[in-house]
Nucleic acid binder design. Sequence first.
RNA 1: GCUACUGUGGCUCAGCUGGUAGAGCAGCGCAUUCGUAAUGCGCAGGCCGUCGGUUCAAAUCCGACCAGUAGCUCCA
Length: 648
Amino acid sequence: MIKVTLKDGSVKEFESGITAMEVAKNLGMGLFKVACACRINGEVKDLRTVINDDCELEILTFDDDEGKNAFRHTASHILAQAVKRLYPKAKLAIGPSIENGFYYDFDVDVAFTPDVLEKIEAEMRKIVKEKLVLERFELDADEAIDKMEELGEDYKIELINEHSGKGEKISFYRQGEFIELCAGPHIPDTSRVKAFKLTSSTGAYWRGDSKNKMLQRIYATAFTKKDAMEEYLAAVEEAKKRDHNIIGRQLKYFMTSDIVGQGLPHLMPKGAKLFQILNRYVQDIEENEYGFEFTRTPLMAKSDLYKISGHWEHYKDGMFVMGDENSGEDVFALRPMTCPFQYQIYLNEMRSYRDLPIRYAETSTLFRNESSGEMHGLIRVRQFTISEGHIIITPEQLKDEFRKCIDLIQRMMTDTGLIGDISYRLSKWDPEDTEKYIGIPEMWNESEGLMREILDDIELDYEEAVGEAAFYGPKLDFQIKNVHGKEDTLCTVQIDLMLARQFEMTYIAPDGTKQYPYIIHRTSIGCYERTMALLIEKYAGAMPLWLSPEQIRILPISDKHLEMAKQIKTKLSQKGLRVKIDERSEKIGYKIREAQLEKLPYMLLVGDKEIAQSTVSVRKRGEGDIGAMGVDDFCELAKKQDDEKVIF
RNA sequence: GCUACUGUGGCUCAGCUGGUAGAGCAGCGCAUUCGUAAUGCGCAGGCCGUCGGUUCAAAUCCGACCAGUAGCUCCA
């Protein structure tokens, strides 16, 4: 007999050799029916795992992340089985569970068009009905390869070959006629996959490498209950309605033009106003509260500059280069970043340790020749403007300055309301990738170590990511997801121990020696276009008052009330509020409807009643008619909400 | 750059298997001067993304290019 300690701390005795699945059944059929996997002594295992010794056991269900993974991974096997039944020549690659679902990659001749997906779904439903039991078995590596060769599964052979060195057995799962190389865990049988949907198909490179063949990927999701899935799918559809690329155009924040080119958005008056609001806000805070000085440097430079910085070697493909290198004349390139330009200002005179830190900021327009498939609305573009800055410091000043950079960003994310959507990423180099990174391992270890120290010090919750660093140093990236769930960097703070050397930037230390400074590269509010996109998505176009291009619209009931409307507008405008009057001879209902569709924070109705009482009737976004108010009272209220950056 | 899909008046969309375009909203004109999400009537507006091919005939079929969407790769 063995002792099994359960999640609630209770201990039960079982015959040695019992499986986790049988334990679950013993605990109750209800639990057994929803069991997806288990955790034995802290390790996630398959329910078929045989238990021979005393242990701690937790039965995992769809409500646990690991249970969800097992469930959806089984659904991906069902998908693969269906594809194999319909297209026997299809070769299987991989099919993991992912956040909110799973995918499977196939090498197959047919295009997975929507009607093909429907056929596959129908076949999957059959497999679910067949209630196929999943069985696990193991083979030696060479047997496993023989088996996969027999089935023509070239990609699986590649995977087995990589594993075979470890001398471990290779595990497989079988369901009906279908056999799949897989580590598991899996749920007991296919009948439990009650609700699933193939959501899209797309291309994806084998092993994520663009040098490899492009396979066809099917994205899908699966749930234990149909209504849970419907709810999820509806939420996805709902999120798409916030897409800045749609409502940003509808609400006339920006547009694009075929004739101008890809990735070159035009900010329309509303977009330009939002840009201006953010830019003034950023510049005021940086200058007045964080000690930055503003520079204004050229938008292009000779190739020589980029050769020193390393950009020419590492990122030439990403730059817009003008002129012919072989002509003997100077070749220029539009700047893809601001660093070397601000460094020139530093280099313009002899610097002392007493001068440091030097904090340069710039509202900096950059140009990057992104590949054609990369552009997306305002999030990924070829010309954009960034709240750029470089802080040149002595090593002792690093921690303090770095923390202040984080503080500044967090302040701006708080004011804009984005703070809750941010996650933090420590982006490290990849020692294997000698192409991408400059410098020696010692310097990378030092800079990454310093950053980790700072982050741990302020107890920031962050993830580490290999191969995401800048070519000159590690980054703290402020990550955010768009409505499609795709993550992008919104803001960044980077430690650079390399470029000062490349540019021969020095300062005179107290002992009279020349030293290389450290450099912090940072954004504050990030790239304006991208930040605006995320704001539009967060608020579905209904901008917080302080960010609204038009904060208040005055709606005269009829033409005879226009004069009073103008007087009120003057009063509000003098307080710095952004006000317009709807002067058209339209019915009041019509004017309200339009202002409502434009998602304006406030509407003020002015008619006979209001004029008689010196009031305005206020309509507030989200609340509707909130009644009449004295003009001065409203003015004070709006001004206060604007100053305090109240979000409603 | 790669895979798939898409491209019809300012916007949203219709136009079956090829016979050369239609609606609603928006716009303009006239009337209406109006009380919390659409007043009525009328008018105008389209080289059907671009170029080329097939055909007696192309918005419809084919090709290339341009642009858009999602994903992959990339993202200094």
